[in-house]
Write a protein that binds this DNA or RNA. Structure first.
Lengths: 352, 352
DNA sequence: TAAGGTTATCATAGCGCTACGATGAATTGG
DNA sequence: CCAATTCATCGTAGCGCTATGATAACCTTA
């Protein structure tokens, strides 16, 4: 007869939770120390006696223990993650910066959480919101212009914020980059110094890419301040591609009949110009002097080699990493606003 | 008189923890529901009554509540993060895939945790270890060859693993990509079909880049199987750059005197070849037929336009995303091993 | 109206770890 | 030889959230 079945005291598994195969507790048990000691060992090995340390190390190894950073982050109220938000990782500029940054941070045990906005401010706000959900150690944004909501979110959180690839405005917290108007001005002055007077600036997606717009503005201003006869800005609504370069050149040739100096917002555009000139038989630099921006992989090797402006994306990555690590280690003077100017370098080659 | 001071019952703040400004509890209080209901609303809004839902939504808005995904991840035993590990984010192939993947995943509320190995297997193991610490929803690796430790780690965890950009071996779990030997073979056959018989394959970093090596091998095999007179493989120890292309061409010209067909492991190398030929007056395609790999931004626009093989990095990203989402939603047939072949497309242009 | 079925909501027990304060052992000094 | 000081180690209370089962509230239908 089944006595237990209908009686009141049914023994049911009260609660059940998913879990991790090996926890710190298991390590502690095997090493015959308390979980606290294991935790301490993992964070500050030198604070634990050598003998205990060895036992723990062996236990970790034997069990194949992998610490759970999610739990750690919750307990410590801050995770070992840095959130990076760029317009597009397809863009070689940002790829370079992210790569450098990732490498620098990885050596300090920090992970990179990546997001890209595709040049949309609303997109950015959503990304910032999710980024903050991870209680990151720091958050890295591109540029200085953000939606009101983004700024509010960021200020409300106590997370260090670094804005990169742009200087000139008031940063939320810290900034690493350079002045884009100055880049444009350098390009214009260089063309003027080569005796060119009928200039054009070829840019892409400038309604969204605020920094390209600034370069164009700096170019136009320096052109006018110098003795340029004409100084036109031509924009392509799509992305900055080689193909766009060809289109833009043709538009510029229509607008500026005696065009003899062209600056491009991006080396890809410049490459497109180069190819289009080759196709149509326009001599570079004899007929048109050409200067780009970015110093991409091909810029030194193309025919003719491309005069360009190097923004040092890797340097930006390094400096951002330094700022983040300083913030985390508390070695940053409290309240000190930090702005790092990575500057730009004009590299003269055969195309001008 | 101070009665409390010396007496035994000192009221001391027992414990203190850091915290978050606004928690789910605060939202619950303001909306006059229990925290569970708020949690439920956030995860499945349709399961909560419209009136309660409205109250909660308003409370969230009023308080500027940002959910803590770290806590959520711990409680749910899996975080809304997908870890992606690529050799290099500077590489346009992987940048494309990561960008697509990130966009697809973001729309489902998943974050991307990025790591890059710089083509090092040890590096990869360390990255996988940290990645697993985040209890990710899935983990995406590049290629099929990993260290023993990496495989063991991955198998021990119950995390869905997707290997991308390579097919042909036995995947750990799921794989999305294409066959690299076949790419090489396609290139060789194309050159042969153009009547070229003195062939060379120009690759870079092939001792580390296993996939480039496979392309070269496939090329050599198809060359021999066809009626190629010579079929040489030339390797550059450094990265695949435009500059390397020029060097490699010159090496190939030495090794293959009557060189008339060149395949490159990467369009950047092909571009370098193009420029070098321009410099030295070698006619393309008349003297040398040139085929690349990647179909990068410039490949359609250069002069002459570049015949190339498109690996569809964006398609890979999309398929990987689909597999991940299927895994998460449990719609994947349990135990079914999934392999997706994204294939490759040869795009014939003017350079052959 | 009672029995049975739906919902919508809730109380509660952790997820695995860190940080705080406390404990006990070892060392020292007067 | 006991108080004072150091040092390694430990016990424990959460971090903020989700999942589970339970409960209450509301319909059905016979």
């Amino acid at each position: 007869m089944d006595t237990g079945g209908s009686s009141a005291q049914v023994r049911l598994t009260r609660k059940r939770r998913k879990m991790q195969r090996v926890t710190m507790m298991d390590v502690a048990k095997l090493a015959q120390v308390s979980p606290s000691t294991v935790s301490l060992y993992l964070r500050k090995p030198e604070a634990v006696s050598p003998s205990a340390g060895q036992d723990i190390a062996r236990a970790i190894d034997d069990l194949g223990y992998v610490p759970n950073l999610v739990a750690g982050g919750l307990a410590a109220a801050s995770s070992k993650v840095v959130s990076i938000i760029v317009p597009s990782i397809r863009n070689a500029f940002f790829a370079e910066t992210v790569a450098t940054l990732q490498a620098e941070l990885a050596s300090e045990g920090l992970q990179v959480l990546l997001g890209h906005t595709d040049y949309g401010e609303n997109q950015e706000e959503a990304l910032v919101r999710t980024a903050l959900s991870w209680a990151p150690a720091a958050i890295v944004l591109t540029g200085l212009s953000h939606s009101l909501g983004t700024s509010k979110l960021l200020k409300a959180s106590r997370v260090p914020v670094i804005e990169m690839w742009e200087l000139g405005g008031e940063p939320l917290d810290m900034a690493v980059g350079f002045s884009h108007p100055q880049v444009g001005a350098s390009a214009a002055r260089h063309l003027l110094s080569k005796g060119r007077r009928n200039l054009a600036f070829l840019g892409a997606r400038m309604h969204e890419d605020h920094r390209a717009e600034q370069r164009a503005a700096g170019f136009a201003e320096a052109g006018k301040a110098g003795d340029a006869s004409i100084c036109e800005i031509v924009n392509h609504p799509g992305a900055a591609t080689v193909e766009a370069g060809a289109l833009l050149l043709n538009r510029a040739l229509q607008q500026v009949p005696d065009l003899d100096g062209v600056a491009c917002s991006n080396d890809l555009i410049a490459l497109g110009v180069l190819f289009e000139c080759q196709r149509t038989g326009i001599a570079i630099p004899e007929k048109i002097a050409l200067i780009g921006f970015g110093d991409l992989d091909f810029s030194a090797s193309c025919v003719p080699s491309l005069t360009t402006i190097r923004p040092s994306g890797d340097l930006i990555g390094k400096e951002v990493a330094r700022l983040i690590l300083d913030s985390i280690h508390g070695s940053r003077p409290e309240g000190a606003r930090r702005i790092v100017d990575t500057s730009h370098v004009l590299i003269e080659r055969r195309s001008t």
